[in-house]
Write a protein that binds this DNA or RNA. Structure first.
Lengths: 186, 186
DNA sequence: CGACACCTTGAAACCCCTCAACGACTGTGG
DNA sequence: CCACAGTCGTTGAGGGGTTTCAAGGTGTCG
């Protein structure tokens, strides 16, 4: 159902780069690069189909729409990483958490497993910490603040948006970068 | 000669996502996405050629190697953003700076305007601050520490590697993600 | 010379981390 | 059935990295 892509660091820390939900590519980034220094970890049970790099590239020659669609997927992945980058660079812990929970909600809504009320979220606070560049302890405190502000509650594997609109305003969340209309095909 | 891609935030901060050097695509990310919420800013005089999204997509149908090469470029861009993400998430200010200066050095070396001795660098400390998620004041202090450690000197528009090997070790820099061998073409 | 951009330094405050401890829950083996 | 280990969540105290505020210095360019 869900996985995450991460990189381990020499000092034992790790940084989660992004999470994948049903319908997402896994490891698209490394198809053409000679290196793949990231690891993928399942969070829940998953179901995957494999496609070889050669086949994928080969298919480009036969179908230009496929090439375009794959490039679109790669661009969208990168846009998410960029937004994630902005999280880490210029938002504090509580804003990061708010923004992250909203982004995941938007993505899950698109595939029908979430809405503005909330969604099922199998992540632990340690996952959030590794994704957001925080300590697990601080994630806990930040989640409490969000709860006490009446914005969002994350408990028992569920995210509940207590006040979706106020949360969006608080986090400065604009889902445009998720490009939920799909690839532009001529 | 150089540009940077950044995003302004509501509170007046901004986050630089990456820098472009000669030979790089500008705005590839937004070709297929409906949105382009990033801005591009010239740092030095630049020379660009324009290519329309339609022409690019159209070319995919005629030349599969081109589609592959463009996807490779997008993947490489993303790999750099990912490494940048790890910088912000799990490295402190001085390691971030060291890693960043090494990455830029590697990229410039590839196009022949740098080596392990150093390179010309037209960035201000404010650029570094916006890229690395730090305050300009702290960038200044961190640069001083790197200088006093005898690792690298950044002054008067030049980066001098005082001890390249020790700097690489200090920053944990591994240029593999830059994939400097170019796209894998069957 | 004045305006401006950039660099430098100090002091105080703040955000977040580390360390430490404990409670709730789950699964496991005796 | 119960003791035990393991994972996850929660909370407190103390310390450190970084920010903000403030001021002054240098260089360039009109």
């Amino acid at each position: 159902m869900k996985t995450d892509t991460y990189k381990d660091l020499p000092n034992g820390d790790r940084q989660i780069v992004d999470f994948q939900i049903p319908g997402d590519f896994l490891g698209l980034r490394s198809v053409l690069l000679h290196t793949s220094d990231h690891s993928i970890e399942p969070i829940t049970d998953i179901e995957v189909s494999e496609i070889s790099a050669d086949d994928l590239i080969d298919a480009f020659s036969k179908n230009q729409r496929l090439a375009t669609a794959v490039l679109w997927a790669a661009s969208r992945d990168e846009a998410m990483v960029v937004e994630h980058l902005i999280d880490l660079g210029r938002r504090n812990a509580i804003e990061r958490l708010a923004h992250f929970l909203l982004e995941l909600g938007s993505r899950l809504t698109l595939i029908g497993t979430g809405n503005t009320t909330g969604y099922a979220c199998p992540l632990t606070q340690y996952h959030l910490a590794d994704a957001l560049g925080l300590s697990a302890v601080h994630v806990n405190r930040a989640l409490r603040q969000l709860r006490e502000k009446g914005l969002v509650t994350f408990q028992n594997g569920r995210v509940n948006f207590d006040s979706y609109d106020r949360l969006v305003a608080f986090a400065g969340f604009d889902p445009a970068y998720l490009d939920q209309k799909g690839p532009f095909l001529p």
